[in-house]
Amino acid sequence: MNIIRRLVVILLLELTALSVLITYCWIDAQSGVILVIFNLLFFSLFSQLNGDVCVKLFLLTTGNVLGTVWSYSFHMLIFYAITYEVASTTTLHTIYTIVYPFLNTFWVIAFWSLSATALNNSQNFGRHMYD
């Protein structure tokens, strides 16, 4: 069981690293940087919360995959908009650079809200239980 857990942990870490690599090399450097920041932030956060290590890593990997898919979709949208000449390249590039980080907030918040629910333990930190 221990070996299987270790394999799962290694696999999840590799998937996370792969997501970051794919995003940085094949999508966009800015997206890659955002994913690295995401990993740093959530790794430091998840380490403080209670829960199984495998669960935490699974959530982190899911977040990375989500971020990669999101980056790819948005990047492709801009790419095809440029190809189809919806607007000038400079305008689209500027929109992408300025608006994109803010749009990332949406999927990060959604991800955070669901993962916090998954990790919420039954331990009563405060004296008040909610029924």
């Binding site: 800015q30 940087v33 955002i34 920041i37 995401f38 932030l41 956060l45 919360l49 650079t97 300025i98 994109y100 980080p101 803010f102 990332n104 907030t105 990060v108 918040i109 955070w112 809200s113 916090a116 990790l119 919420n120 039954s122 331990q123 009563n124 930190f125 405060g126 008040h128 239980m129 909610y130």
Partner: peptide, 25 residues
């Protein structure tokens, strides 16, 4: 700017989420 826009805007939600977590919500 991206950093702030990404993490900075997220920071208040971060706080709320942790607060809910600590309250057992």
């Amino acid at each position: 700017v991206s950093c702030y826009s990404f993490i900075g805007n997220f920071a208040p939600f971060f706080e709320v989420g942790v607060g809910l977590y600590l309250d057992g919500r």
